[in-house]
Design a protein around this nucleic acid. Structure first.
Lengths: 250, 250
DNA sequence: CTGTGAAGTTTCAAATAATGAAACTCGCTT
DNA sequence: AAGCGAGTTTCATTATTTGAAACTTCACAG
């Protein structure tokens, strides 16, 4: 019996799971399957029935619709816009928050949150840019292994967007190394004048799968608080990873 | 506290339902909402989390995917083919079992079961016939109120299918009155030579909504056992009604 | 650095609830 | 009528739950 578990609740949930697995099950079968006395099985089943988790037709119990009702949160696994962890980051930092993934040689926004951080910014989701042009894209590139990075750089033609952008692949690789070392990427008004951005990688099974970033007016992000912001982003990144694992049933 | 309920299980399920309703909830909020001590709330939440019903991201709990996983039975509310009660009737009587509904002036088969009564007979489902030509259709007509019956009969042209069928509406109405009185309709090889059929109505909110029937070789259905079969069908009919109510969240 | 408060976790005696053997009820079959 | 199986209830014993309080950890402010 693991610590801090309520064994009676656990028992009841095991009964529920058994009923859910079966195309109908009788009281006697529940007794036998879970080694319960008749009256215990009866009471557990009755409680589940009274609370509408199961129903009974003649001698058999079946799982009821309550198990399949959607919660207030409407989502499926791997729906990035539904991840609670991203909302938590946004609310914690009180800055625009972004999650982006790789699609070919592009960075695609899969979640964008602006104040009051309750709903996705639908009009910005799906926005694309070349990987090397944003902090999100660069922090992902910085975490790729040599082979994958080479393959991606081969596919990309580096084009300058602003005077601050790197034109030479070799210099770009050094830049990525620095980002890798820092653990975050910093965008200093390179994409939008007056806006700064900090991005960190999101990992899954030791591989980078996405990037998590905040963006805010330049006066909110200074040399003195970048490290702090990056630390909080990393906490959020780990929470995203965990949430994905849970939602995938790992 | 109602009888035969396990209060600890109930408490745990109330916690689960609260978590499911909220876009994230903290231990403190659960305590407050359900008037539980800190350690009790903690243990209930921990048990639910350990069994994968909920998950925790930093200080907040969210409902997990386990609640939405489909059970072995794949179905939605009002999917007639998914009703367990019909399977129970078939297995009890060990005869071909049918459920039919009204569509316009037709009787449509919405579930058909043959031995070994594990799967729907898909090729027969959706089969249509005129209401007056089958025991299922007739038992439905027999339970309609005068106005609805008149409206339906007006829309229908009665055509003989076999020599045993009624050609005259007046006689047909008497026939329906007899069926109403009996509480079941009996098809004596009128549709298929060698096959007999017994059908009863299925009610919902005091209105006939469908018909439930069995069909078998003539030697399995005799004058002496019709009443018995009809009684069992009526039990099944009530079980169908109940199951529909449960699935509709009544 | 210290102190504070909040969240998380654990302890343990008292209180409460769960348990299960057995009795009872009901319906069906022989 | 008796027997059987399913469903329901009883009640003394046992096990579990409960909650106050202690402890731990963390973040933040001064």
């Amino acid at each position: 019996m693991a610590q801090n578990q309520v064994s009676t609740l656990k028992k009841g949930l095991l009964v529920l799971e058994l009923v859910k697995q079966c195309q109908g099950i009788t009281l006697a079968e529940v007794m036998k399957e879970l080694q319960l006395s008749k009256s215990t099985a009866f009471r557990l089943l009755t409680t589940l029935e009274d609370m509408n988790y199961i129903y009974k037709i003649q001698t058999q119990y079946f799982s009821g619709p309550k198990l399949f009702q959607e919660s207030t949160e409407n989502r499926s696994a791997k729906d990035w816009a539904a991840l609670h962890s991203i909302y938590q980051v946004a609310q914690n930092l009180q800055m625009g928050t972004y999650l982006g993934k790789v699609d070919g040689t592009d960075l695609v926004m899969t979640q964008v949150l602006h104040a009051p951080f309750q709903h996705s910014a639908d009009e910005e989701m799906g926005n694309r840019s070349k990987l090397h042009l944003s902090a999100l894209g660069k922090v992902i590139l910085a975490q790729l292994d040599e082979g994958k990075l080479n393959a991606l750089l081969d596919k990309m033609s580096l084009e300058p967007a602003t005077a601050n952008t790197f034109q030479d692949t070799q210099l770009f690789r050094y830049h990525l190394k620095a980002i890798h070392q820092d653990g975050y990427a910093f965008d200093d008004e390179e994409r939008n004048v007056g806006i700064r951005c900090v991005a960190v990688p999101v990992f899954r099974n030791k591989e980078v799968i996405a990037a998590l970033a905040i963006a805010a007016p330049a006066k909110q992000i200074s040399k003195s608080n970048i490290k702090q912001i990056a630390t909080k982003l990393n906490v959020g990144s780990k929470a995203v990873t965990k949430e994905l694992e849970v939602l995938d049933g790992n």
